[in-house]
Write a protein that binds this DNA or RNA. Structure first.
Lengths: 190, 190
DNA sequence: TATGTAAGTAAGTAGTTACTAACATATCGG
DNA sequence: CCGATATGTTAGTAACTACTTACTTACATA
């Protein structure tokens, strides 16, 4: 692993935990096991390091949720989608929370934040428009369904990790399934 | 206004915008218009100032959402609740995002975060159990309904303010109403 | 053998940061 | 009016912070 890679890896862990101003260049270099001056040879300044770090964090996001797009069972597809998204938000929750905060002062981070969730909105829209075309849902703008499911899962997961002491992932996923079949599109239940 | 009050007010604005490590005691004192040493006479250290600030921020939260608890119209009550909550999350979004981030390193902040949203969960539970008792909803645990509505509104609002460039509050509230009547409990629609 | 490249070491700069000490002044209740 | 309490002023400290400079080492390639 090159020095630059080591620095980016260390930086991602530190920025994620301590945010921009809580992270020092000395700490990043130390965690990467390289000299601090090497950091400044690869990155013009701390700000540049932060930006490049954020880019590669978000670049590593792979959402493997598309494999149910043509699922014949709407309810199953929905639950699968929700659970996958929930797991993703859980894994990335610290990065997300950090970026949610840093984007207050650095609005261009919004674009990077969008890349993750927004891509899933498009995916979900396809999913819903397919099921609408099959007559399984009333023919309204599929974006409404997509937005609401993503909002629901996002809110549920971030609330979960931010408020609860300890989480048992499996029981949380089960509860999420309950929520979806009971309150979200309950007409699906039977 | 006493020096202490001025300090707490300035601190709340700065911590909310820049977080803990982005805020300096000098800046707080300057914004409050008092000498920095006065800050340390009222608060043992920066950490204490932060904690007391956070306490009073959350202490000022008044949720006036209870006035529809016995509403005969489930759909109207729900929309009213959701909109009120949405407005609250919008107003408080920077504080919420800051605390969501700071609670990564300072887990005791979770308790303070809970006070706001959690109180509304209880309120909502009453609302739903009333309508369940009236036979307007299937008799499941009302907490499921409460959790999902709060998750939905929370996720929607935080997503909104964090991703969108400019928000027109009224059209966002309308869209939220669409979401609720279309995707959340759609059986209410008629 | 010569040269370029990536990394290290060591030292330092200029500014910031949380926090303290000592002393002076203002304000206010009794 | 007195005395206590609150606040200001000034100065300082020790550590930290982002970033720079000058020079060195190791290795690969021409």
């Amino acid at each position: 692993m090159s020095a630059k890679e080591k620095l980016l890896y260390a930086a991602s862990r530190l920025f994620e935990e301590k945010g921009y101003s809580g992270t020092t260049t000395a700490a990043v270099a130390a965690m990467a096991g390289v000299a601090e001056v090497t950091l400044f040879r690869h990155f013009k300044n701390k700000e540049t390091l932060f930006r490049e770090t954020v880019k590669q964090i978000q670049g590593s996001v792979i959402l493997e949720i598309s494999d149910r797009e043509g699922d014949p069972d709407l309810r199953d597809g929905l639950c699968h989608f929700a659970k996958t998204l929930c797991r993703y938000f859980m894994e990335q929750n610290r990065t997300i929370r950090m970026m949610l905060f840093e984007s207050i002062r650095n609005p261009e981070l919004k674009d990077l934040l969008k890349e993750g969730p927004m891509r899933s909105v498009t995916r979900l829209e396809f999913f819903f428009s397919y099921h609408i075309s099959q007559g399984r849902l009333p023919s309204v703008d599929p974006r409404i369904y997509a937005d609401s499911l993503i909002s629901l899962v996002f809110g549920y997961t971030i609330g979960l990790v931010s408020l609860k002491e300890k989480q048992d992932i499996n029981s949380e996923l089960e509860y999420l399934e309950d929520i979806i079949t009971t309150a979200f599109l309950p007409e699906l239940k039977h």
